[in-house]
Design a protein around this nucleic acid. Structure first.
Length: 558
RNA sequence: GCGCCAGUAGCUCAGCUGGACAGAGCAACGGCCUUCUAAGCCGUGGGUCGAGGGUUCGAGUCCUUCCUGGCGCGCCA
């Protein structure tokens, strides 16, 4: 709807220019928005105010000229007015809103998708938790966000790959292996002193137990070094298996699990470092190899190869990201914990050094999750090895509530996760609120079917009975859905979909309580059925986009 | 000390790449189930948008200074 009006406006502007009514042939991007105040029409533009300076005319005068050319925009508008300092307000005809319902019905599950990112490949890398323990609640937020961002991008026409980067090289997993090995020896009657920095969680003992059952005879004769290596491999495999299981239970699947170790095994770290050297982006100092990240805004240059030889974590991360772009992605999105924000400048500097736009890498920072129970924070001590796992929360509040809550806020602001609220089955719980709206409409459809009322085929709707303000407002909301998805994709902000869902559900519930869909008047009933069906389709599309279910009926538990 | 992010109603937060009188949910209070699911709806009260200055026809939104909170500043990963 907005796009059609935009199109008409642009033509009017160009025609004004051609006829010499306007001096400038280049126009600023047309901004059309929905005024907060209904008295200001359905859509409004500030273009006259923006053009006024260049044209050296009063804004209202510019508006008059443009409007003279626009007319009623091919029947879209029932009224156009100039208001305030020079805003142009458009009042759209009912018919133009009715067209939205046609479109929703015609497009069905694809309503809301667009070709915005057509032909572009994006990779979204998320979770990427070290395989040294189970996923905790913070990983869950990253998982929900990354998955939703990927989905939103896909809906906007991008070709999307979901990737999990496995940190299976380096000290952390080595420490995991050592921890398992020590617990295994303990299991076999040895008295050992467990290191201060070892992994202390009970799950280490469980893994040691599994190791003992399956590989005791293999492990027993090994010397320390190969034994620890064996434990590392075994532990990583076990934990990755659990992580994958947890994620699947959470409704998330990755297209690619990418191993850090494989970077080394394939010589990619060396290869990519050689490229950096070749381009003169590195230098040696104090026996170490440095990357000149300060050339592109970083605070200090960063070490790639330590003086004693081995590459830093940064080196493998650089190689990893270079390799991502080697794979041909136009855009790479990383989802990180907010505590890693300090690493963003150096990664972008690396890209800039290679002559790529730093914007080709977008890093989403995920802020902390504070779990609340009975209004009190649930304390988590990572040191003691005791933390709330994602699995526990999903088991307690359910997958939908969990995902919804994670997506309710923009990712870079802290999130209070109220466990009691997430479980509550009432209108206070926004998850059920939205899902209930969907289920309610399904229920209406079932009743309609029993009454013998059928939804007419798309294009054959008689929607003229829909003329209540609330009905028009609902259609406007439906019209806004595709823009909402595009905005969420452009800004990588899936929470916009959540807010949209709440708004649409709210508008529907309110309408439902005030007006009956199924009435004595068959023509009216049928039109309203078309309306609520459109709402159902959009609610369903948006819910599924976020990885949430769209229930056809609500089932009370307990 | 430097850097990043935040500071909007009692609480938790939106505010769409500056726009027309600042929004939602929760909490509080008062109503609504002979009618398509009350997991719902309606109504009421509540804010100097952290503070000062600046840019603009127009600032919660941009610039600057200060205050407060969180996080980060390894040849760790």
């Amino acid at each position: 709807m907005k796009k059609q009006l935009q199109h008409h406006l642009m033509q009017a502007l160009q025609e004004c220019y051609r006829q010499g009514l306007l001096h400038s042939g280049t126009f600023p991007p047309l901004v059309l928005e929905e005024p907060a105040n209904a008295g200001h029409g359905d859509l409004a533009t500030n273009l006259a105010l923006v053009l006024a300076r260049e044209e050296k005319k009063a804004p209202r005068q510019v508006a008059e000229i443009v409007l003279g050319m626009l007319g009623d925009a091919g029947g879209l508008c029932r009224q156009v007015e100039i208001a305030g300092p020079g805003f142009i307000n458009f009042f759209l005809s009912h018919r133009s809103w009715h067209l939205v319902l046609d479109e929703v019905a015609r497009q069905g599950e694809t309503y809301g998708t667009s070709a915005m990112g057509a032909g572009k490949r994006v990779q979204v890398e998320f979770v990427s938790a070290n395989p040294t323990g189970p996923l905790h609640i913070g990983h869950g937020r990253g998982a929900a966000t990354g998955d939703a961002v990927a989905a939103v991008l896909a809906a906007a026409g991008y070709e999307v790959q979901r990737e999990y980067y496995i940190n299976d090289a380096g000290n952390q997993v080595a420490l995991l292996g050592r921890s398992i090995w020590l617990r295994w020896r303990e299991l076999n009657g040895e008295r050992i002193e467990f290191p201060e920095d070892g992994y202390r969680g009970d799950y280490i003992r469980e893994i040691a137990g599994a190791l003992d059952r399956e590989h005791a005879s293999h492990l027993a004769p090994l010397a320390e070094e190969p034994a620890v290596a064996f434990c590392t491999d075994f532990g990583v495999r076990q934990l990755l298996g659990q992580i994958d299981e947890d994620l699947q239970k959470f409704g998330i699947r990755f297209d690619c699990w990418y191993s850090e170790r494989s970077l080394y095994d394939r010589g990619l770290v060396e290869k990519e470092l050689a490229k950096l050297r070749q381009r003169g982006l590195t230098y040696e100092k104090d026996g170490a190899l440095w990357l000149r990240t300060t050339d592109h805004g970083d605070d200090k240059d960063r070490v790639l190869l330590r003086a004693d030889g081995p590459p830093t974590y940064f080196a493998s991360d650089v190689a990893y990201h270079m390799e991502k772009f080697d794979r041909g992605f136009d855009l790479v999105v990383d989802v990180w914990g907010a505590d890693h924000h300090g690493y963003v400048p150096r990664m972008k500097a690396m890209l800039a050094g290679l002559g790529r736009s730093p914007d080709d890498l977008q890093v989403l920072l995920i802020q902390m999750v504070n779990l609340l129970r009975d209004g009190q924070p649930v304390t988590m001590g990572k040191r003691s090895g005791e933390f709330i796992t994602l699995r526990e929360v999903v088991d307690e509040v359910g997958r939908d509530a969990c995902r919804f809550f994670f997506l309710m806020r923009r990712s870079d602001s802290q999130l209070d996760f109220d466990l009691d609220l997430a479980k509550r089955q009432s209108n206070e719980n926004p998850v059920y609120y939205v899902q209930y709206a969907h289920a309610r409409i399904c229920s209406i459809s079932r009743n309609a079917a029993e009454l013998g009322l059928q939804l007419p085929a798309s294009g054959q709707f008689d929607l003229s009975p829909l003329e209540l303000d609330e009905e028009l407002a609902l259609m406007k909301l439906l019209a806004r859905y595709p823009e909402t998805v595009e905005g969420a994709a452009r800004l990588l902000e899936p929470h916009r979909i959540v807010f949209y869902l709440q708004e649409l559900a709210g508008a529907f519930h309110s309408y439902y309580n005030r007006h009956r869909v199924l009435t004595e008047d068959a023509r009216l009933s049928q039109a309203r059925l078309c309306l609520v069906n459109g709402i159902r389709v959009v609610l369903g599309n948006a819910l599924r986009l976020l990885g949430l279910s769209a229930p056809e009926q609500m089932q009370r538990e307990g």
